[in-house]
Amino acid sequence: MFLTRWQPLVGNEVNRLQHEMGRLFGHLGQQGNWPAAVPAYPAVNLWEDEQNVYAEAELPGINQDALQITVAQGDQLTIAGERQPLETQGTWHRQERGYGRFSRTFQLPALVDADKVEAKLEHGVLLVTLAKSEAAKPRRIAVKSE
């Protein structure tokens, strides 16, 4: 038998918990799109700089082959895949990890070049680097003086 020791929450942890709860239940009661309480999986962090958009997701236990990454319409990124259930016999004491198929599509902050997308899966963390399309990159405008 396993028992988990209670760990007090500290500082940021409380904020993160609130944020997580907001993410899980935030759209409850909105628009009536049911089921509302299912969290979006995977959670995704996005960054951008002048050249690229970066998307990172935690996907532990997922093989490279079971993952599909697609870009549509220049700014719609889809991360889809499947995590296989454990094939082990025995009595469960705890089952907190999920498994099954998932798919998530979201809007990128800029148009990207679908031919210049790189994805890397390392230690269960996926990082997708998407090069911005030329039109979306900032341009320096030369100012003429007369």
């Binding site: 993410r23 979006a40 995704v44 962090n45 996005l46 960054w47 700089d49 690229n52 970066y54 680097t129």
Partner: peptide
Amino acid sequence: PQGRAVQTE
């Protein structure tokens, strides 16, 4: 990566 955070989940 470095850059501006757009979305932090």
